[in-house]
Amino acid sequence: MLQSIAIILGAQTLGELINRLTGVPVPGPVIGMLLLLIAFFLWDGLIDRIRPTAGVLLAHLSLLFVPAGVGIIRHGERFMNEGVAIAVTIAVTSVVAMLVTIAAVKGTERLLHLTEKEED
Protein backbone atom coordinates (compact mmCIF):
# COMPACT_ATOMS: atom_id res chain seq x y z
CA MET A 1 0.00 0.00 0.00
CA LEU A 2 2.85 2.41 0.75
CA GLN A 3 4.31 1.88 -2.72
CA SER A 4 0.95 2.67 -4.30
CA ILE A 5 0.57 5.84 -2.26
CA ALA A 6 4.13 6.81 -3.19
CA ILE A 7 3.33 6.31 -6.89
CA ILE A 8 0.12 8.38 -6.64
CA LEU A 9 1.80 11.18 -4.69
CA GLY A 10 4.82 11.02 -7.00
CA ALA A 11 2.59 11.55 -10.03
CA GLN A 12 0.89 14.48 -8.29
CA THR A 13 4.24 16.01 -7.32
CA LEU A 14 5.57 15.61 -10.85
CA GLY A 15 2.40 17.25 -12.15
CA GLU A 16 2.89 20.17 -9.77
CA LEU A 17 6.51 20.48 -10.88
CA ILE A 18 5.51 20.52 -14.55
CA ASN A 19 2.83 23.10 -13.79
CA ARG A 20 5.20 25.42 -11.97
CA LEU A 21 8.03 25.08 -14.49
CA THR A 22 5.92 25.54 -17.60
CA GLY A 23 3.13 27.77 -16.32
CA VAL A 24 0.54 25.62 -18.09
CA PRO A 25 -2.94 26.74 -16.99
CA VAL A 26 -3.84 23.25 -15.79
CA PRO A 27 -3.68 22.30 -12.10
CA GLY A 28 -0.71 20.16 -11.11
CA PRO A 29 -2.86 17.30 -9.76
CA VAL A 30 -4.67 17.09 -13.10
CA ILE A 31 -1.36 16.86 -14.91
CA GLY A 32 -0.34 14.19 -12.39
CA MET A 33 -3.51 12.21 -13.14
CA LEU A 34 -2.73 12.36 -16.85
CA LEU A 35 0.81 11.17 -16.18
CA LEU A 36 -0.56 8.32 -14.07
CA LEU A 37 -2.98 7.41 -16.87
CA ILE A 38 -0.10 7.30 -19.34
CA ALA A 39 1.85 5.15 -16.88
CA PHE A 40 -1.08 2.72 -16.70
CA PHE A 41 -0.86 2.25 -20.47
CA LEU A 42 2.92 1.87 -20.46
CA TRP A 43 3.40 -0.53 -17.54
CA ASP A 44 1.42 -3.74 -17.37
CA GLY A 45 0.10 -4.54 -13.93
CA LEU A 46 0.51 -1.01 -12.56
CA ILE A 47 -3.23 -0.43 -12.47
CA ASP A 48 -3.74 -3.69 -10.55
CA ARG A 49 -1.12 -2.57 -8.08
CA ILE A 50 -2.73 0.85 -7.54
CA ARG A 51 -6.40 -0.25 -7.57
CA PRO A 52 -6.67 -1.46 -3.92
CA THR A 53 -5.11 1.71 -2.54
CA ALA A 54 -7.18 3.92 -4.84
CA GLY A 55 -10.30 2.10 -3.64
CA VAL A 56 -9.48 2.88 -0.03
CA LEU A 57 -8.80 6.53 -0.88
CA LEU A 58 -12.07 6.81 -2.78
CA ALA A 59 -13.98 5.16 0.07
CA HIS A 60 -12.76 7.90 2.39
CA LEU A 61 -12.97 10.75 -0.11
CA SER A 62 -15.47 12.64 2.03
CA LEU A 63 -12.70 13.27 4.57
CA LEU A 64 -10.92 15.36 1.97
CA PHE A 65 -13.83 17.82 1.99
CA VAL A 66 -13.35 18.61 5.69
CA PRO A 67 -10.81 21.40 4.94
CA ALA A 68 -13.31 23.03 2.55
CA GLY A 69 -15.98 22.90 5.25
CA VAL A 70 -13.59 24.45 7.74
CA GLY A 71 -12.83 27.19 5.23
CA ILE A 72 -16.53 27.93 4.88
CA ILE A 73 -16.94 28.15 8.65
CA ARG A 74 -13.86 30.35 8.89
CA HIS A 75 -15.45 32.82 6.50
CA GLY A 76 -18.83 32.69 8.23
CA GLU A 77 -19.05 36.47 8.52
CA ARG A 78 -18.61 36.84 4.78
CA PHE A 79 -21.43 34.34 4.21
CA MET A 80 -23.62 36.31 6.61
CA ASN A 81 -22.91 39.51 4.67
CA GLU A 82 -22.92 38.11 1.13
CA GLY A 83 -24.93 34.91 1.59
CA VAL A 84 -27.96 36.07 -0.38
CA ALA A 85 -25.80 37.11 -3.34
CA ILE A 86 -23.92 33.80 -3.22
CA ALA A 87 -27.17 31.79 -3.05
CA VAL A 88 -28.73 33.75 -5.92
CA THR A 89 -25.59 33.35 -8.00
CA ILE A 90 -25.53 29.60 -7.41
CA ALA A 91 -29.23 29.26 -8.24
CA VAL A 92 -29.08 31.42 -11.39
CA THR A 93 -25.94 29.78 -12.76
CA SER A 94 -27.39 26.33 -12.10
CA VAL A 95 -30.55 27.21 -14.04
CA VAL A 96 -28.50 28.75 -16.85
CA ALA A 97 -26.31 25.62 -17.03
CA MET A 98 -29.42 23.42 -17.27
CA LEU A 99 -30.94 25.63 -19.99
CA VAL A 100 -27.71 25.63 -21.99
CA THR A 101 -27.55 21.83 -21.68
CA ILE A 102 -31.14 21.52 -22.91
CA ALA A 103 -30.41 23.84 -25.83
CA ALA A 104 -27.26 21.88 -26.72
CA VAL A 105 -29.13 18.56 -26.67
CA LYS A 106 -32.01 19.96 -28.73
CA GLY A 107 -29.58 21.58 -31.16
CA THR A 108 -27.66 18.33 -31.53
CA GLU A 109 -30.90 16.45 -32.18
CA ARG A 110 -31.84 18.96 -34.89
CA LEU A 111 -28.34 18.85 -36.35
CA LEU A 112 -28.41 15.07 -36.52
CA HIS A 113 -32.05 15.10 -37.67
CA LEU A 114 -33.18 12.88 -34.84
CA THR A 115 -36.90 12.81 -34.29
CA GLU A 116 -39.08 10.76 -31.99
CA LYS A 117 -40.25 8.71 -34.99
CA GLU A 118 -36.67 7.69 -35.85
CA GLU A 119 -35.89 6.73 -32.25
CA ASP A 120 -38.79 4.23 -32.10
Rank of each mutant, 00 (worst) to 15 (best):
Thr108Trp: 11
Gln12Phe: 11
Ala91Gly: 05
Leu21Asp: 01
Leu111Phe: 15
Ile8Leu: 15
Asn19Met: 05
Gly71Cys: 08
Phe65Gly: 01
Leu58Ala: 07
Leu58Ser: 12
Asn19His: 14
Val92Ser: 06
Leu114Phe: 06
Thr22Ala: 03
Ala39Ser: 14
Gly107Ala: 07
Val92Leu: 14
Gly28His: 02
Val66Thr: 10
Asp44Thr: 11
Glu16Pro: 00
Val100His: 02
Ile7Glu: 04
Thr101Glu: 13
Thr108Gln: 08
Ile73Thr: 09
Thr89Asn: 09
Ile38Thr: 09
Val70Ile: 14
Thr93Asp: 00
Gln12Ile: 05
Arg20His: 08
Pro29Gly: 06
Ser4Pro: 05
Gln12Arg: 03
Val88Tyr: 08
Ser94Ala: 12
Glu116Gln: 06
Thr53Leu: 07
Glu77Pro: 00
Leu37Ile: 12
Glu82Arg: 05
Ala6Gln: 12
Ile86Thr: 02
Val30Asp: 05
Val66Phe: 07
Val66Met: 08
Leu58Ile: 13
Leu42Tyr: 12
Thr93Trp: 04
Met33Cys: 08
Ser62Lys: 05
Gly32Lys: 02
Leu57Lys: 00
Ala11Val: 11
Arg78Leu: 12
Val95Ser: 02
Ile86Arg: 02
Val92Asp: 09
Ser4Ala: 15
Ala39His: 04
Leu111Ile: 02
Ile31Asp: 05
Thr115Arg: 07
Ser62Thr: 01
Met1Lys: 07
Pro67Trp: 01
Leu58Glu: 14
Glu109Gln: 12
Thr93Met: 12
Thr22Gln: 02
His113Val: 08
Lys106Pro: 00
Leu58Thr: 13
Ser62Ile: 10
Val70Arg: 01
Leu34Lys: 00
Pro27Trp: 03
Glu116Leu: 09
